[in-house]
Amino acid sequence: MLRTGASRLALRSIAGPAARPAAPSFTPPLQWTSRLSSMASRRPQLPPMRQLTPIQGAVLRRAMVGKIDRKAEDRYQHEKLEPHPELVTTTSSVRSAFSEVATPEAPKDVDMMARVKYDFTTIKDTFDLSAVPRQAYLIGLAGVLPYLATSISTVYCAWEINHSVAGYGYFLSAQTAEQLLHFLEPLQVGYGAVILSFLGAIHWGLEFAGYGGNHGYKRYAIGVVAPAVAWPTILMPVEYALITQFMAFTVLYYVDTRAATRGWTPSWYGIYRFVLTFIVGASIVLSLVGRGEVADHIKGIPGAVDRMKNLKDDAQQALSHQEEGIGAQKAADAAKED
């Protein structure tokens, strides 16, 4: 048995053996006595293992472990690993982590579409809308349908203008399609500004209700910034207005997902907002594509600032004509009197 510091400590803590009944005397042979007398005088007599405490027994068992076989360890260290290609299969990488080698018998029928099915299942679980209230889901989709309708109508008008012959298309003339295009795009910009303002106002309602706690200015700021960004887009040219609203919808979606993660909104609000934002973003892209297809065929659509300027110019021209008429009438009256 190896002598270590732990074993000596355990041996010292062991009390002397309890009194036991006298065992039958046994006198070893002379050669045994002479051979073991020196070791017996120096080694204490250990009591049986059942009389030791659990800690003392563990220390003694560890001390009884034999020496390490250095030769075997050296042989294992310099041993070269041999490859076994026959054990590598298409499914060997998914074996149990506790097995040393793969099972040589690979399954004959391997489902190659299993990974694809798993990916589709993951996507389906990620975009699961089962937790979204049915009323909110249906009304939310109905709310973005007018926005999508304006985009589809813009693309259709652009198609009619591009495919018109001598000013006439399949169902609409080029002039009618252009007038309808001028009418639709401001509607889309105005409706997009309304949607942005509504999404910001949702955070005010959540703060009033105390959903997820009261957060004060942090949540109120979301409802204030959204309409502040949406309102100026009404005065921009239609292309710049749509691009600005696209960026605003994207940033607001990121803010809403962060709010859902922090518990400021219901857990389903993030995926719900993703679906609606995706539809609105796709609608804006469609409108920009349709507008780009007819950029060289129609005049620039005047924005709100241009329309206000035209109204002002028209009013000034009408006033000047009226003043000229009044002056001419006075001159005629003066000539009659003379």
Rank of each mutant, 00 (worst) to 15 (best):
R3Y: 08
S7Y: 07
L9V: 03
L9D: 15
S13F: 00
I14L: 14
I14T: 13
A15E: 14
P17R: 12
R20Y: 01
A22V: 11
P24N: 15
F26V: 12
T27W: 03
P28T: 14
P29I: 07
P29F: 04
L30F: 10
L30G: 10
L36T: 13
S37A: 15
R42W: 02
P44E: 15
P44Q: 15
Q45N: 03
M49Q: 08
M49W: 10
Q51W: 06
L52F: 06
T53E: 09
P54K: 11
I55N: 15
Q56G: 06
G57A: 15
A58Q: 11
V65E: 14
G66F: 09
I68H: 04
D74H: 10
R75S: 11
R75A: 13
E79P: 00
E82G: 01
E86R: 08
T90I: 03
V94G: 08
T103H: 13
T103L: 00
T103S: 11
V110L: 11
V110C: 04
M112A: 13
A114N: 06
R115N: 09
K117D: 12
Y118N: 15
Y118M: 09
T122S: 14
D125C: 09
F127Q: 05
D128C: 05
S130N: 10
V132W: 05
A136P: 00
Y137T: 03
L138W: 04
V144T: 14
L145A: 14
P146V: 14
P146H: 13
L148Y: 13
A149N: 14
T150V: 02
Y156K: 10
C157W: 05
N162V: 12
H163C: 04
V165Y: 06
Y170K: 11
L172V: 03
L172W: 13
A174H: 06
E178V: 05
H182Y: 13
V189P: 02
Y191M: 07
Y191W: 04
I195K: 04
I195E: 12
L196H: 03
F198H: 12
L199C: 07
A201H: 09
H203F: 09
G205I: 02
A209F: 01
Y211P: 00
Y211T: 05
N214P: 00
G216E: 07
A226C: 09
A228L: 14
A228C: 07
A228D: 08
W231F: 02
P232C: 12
T233G: 04
T233L: 05
M236H: 11
M236Y: 13
V238A: 11
Y240R: 05
A241Y: 05
T244W: 02
M247A: 15
A248F: 08
F249Y: 13
T250E: 15
V251K: 05
Y253N: 08
T257H: 02
T261S: 05
F274W: 11
L276I: 14
L276K: 09
I279G: 07
I284W: 08
V289I: 10
V289P: 01
R291W: 04
R291Q: 11
G292D: 14
V294F: 13
A295P: 00
D296V: 02
G300S: 10
N310A: 15
D314P: 00
Q316V: 02
Q316D: 10
Q316F: 00
Q316C: 01
A318H: 05
S320R: 07
Q322V: 03
E323R: 07
I326K: 07
Q329A: 12
A335V: 00
